[in-house]
Write a protein that binds this DNA or RNA. Structure first.
Lengths: 114, 114
DNA sequence: ACGTCATATCCATAAATCATGAATTATGGA
DNA sequence: TCCATAATTCATGATTTATGGATATGACGT
C-alpha cells in the first residue's frame, strides 16, 4: 500500500453513505449484500449508492460479484489490512509501546472471538 | 466514537499533507514533533501546515502542547483507537473469522514488538 | 519596551466533491 | 422479441475544501 492508495481509501471512508455501506459490508462478512439491499438499508437512491460503491471499489475496500441480475458486494479484507498497515507502519517498528495497547484494544475482548 | 466523529477522522486523513504529518507523528511516538519540524520535514508552508494540523486536532487524531515558543504535536492514540474501533465494530462481534486474520496481521510479527 | 522567532488566523480564489435526474446497459422471464 | 428489474454512467449545479498572502498572537532575549 502506497501513499496514493491510502489516500484513496481514507477519502472513500470520509463520506457518510460510503462509511455506512462499508460498515454494513463488514458486518455482513462473507455473505455480502446486494447493491439494492444496501440502498434499501441506508435509504439512498440507487444511482447515488452505485456511485458511492464504485468509489469504495476503486479504493480496494470492497469487491463485487454478479449473481444473475443482482450484484453482490463484500468488504475486502486485504484492502482494509493494507490501509491500516500503512497507517500504523512505523508505529509498531519504532514505538512498540504506542502500538501495542491499540492492537490489544481492537482484539476481541474476553475470548468472544475465535 | 460516533458516525460524525469517525467521518471527521477519515476525512482528516484523506489529504496528503495531513496523512503524512500524522504518520510522522505516529513514528515520533511520545517524543512528538514541533509544528516547524513537521513543516520542514514535509516541505509545506507554515500556514498551510498549521491549518492542516488544526484539522487533525479537531478530528481528535493529534494533541498539542506549548513549550515556550514551540508547539509540539503528538499522535493521539485514543483517537486512533476510537476510529479503528468504529470501523471494525461489528466485524469482530458478528464475523470473527473475518476480523481475526486482520488483527493478526497488524500485530507485530516474530516478537519484534514488546 | 523592542525585535524576532514560532504559530495561528483571516480572507480570497481555485479546485475537488457530492447528490440528483436522465439516459444506458445487462439480465431474466413471458 | 418485449418487458420489467437491477445496476451503472453521464452531465450539471451546489457545496465544500485547499492554498497562499497578509496579518495577528504569543513567547523569548536584550
Amino acid at each position: 500500500m502506497d501513499m496514493t492508495s491510502a489516500l484513496t481509501a481514507f477519502s472513500a471512508l470520509s463520506q457518510q453513505t460510503r462509511l455506512e455501506a462499508f460498515r454494513l459490508l463488514v458486518t455482513a462478512g462473507d455473505t455480502g449484500m446486494s447493491a439494492g439491499d444496501i440502498a434499501g438499508a441506508l435509504d439512498v437512491r440507487q444511482n447515488t449508492l452505485s456511485a458511492n460503491l464504485s468509489v469504495l471499489l476503486q479504493a480496494g475496500l470492497v469487491r463485487n460479484q454478479r449473481e444473475g441480475r443482482v450484484i453482490r458486494y463484500f468488504a475486502d479484507t486485504d484492502g482494509m489490512r493494507g490501509m491500516l498497515g500503512f497507517l500504523l507502519e512505523d508505529c509498531c517498528g519504532g514505538q512498540p509501546e504506542l502500538c501495542q495497547p491499540l492492537i490489544e484494544d481492537l482484539t476481541c475482548r474476553e475470548g468472544e472471538c475465535a
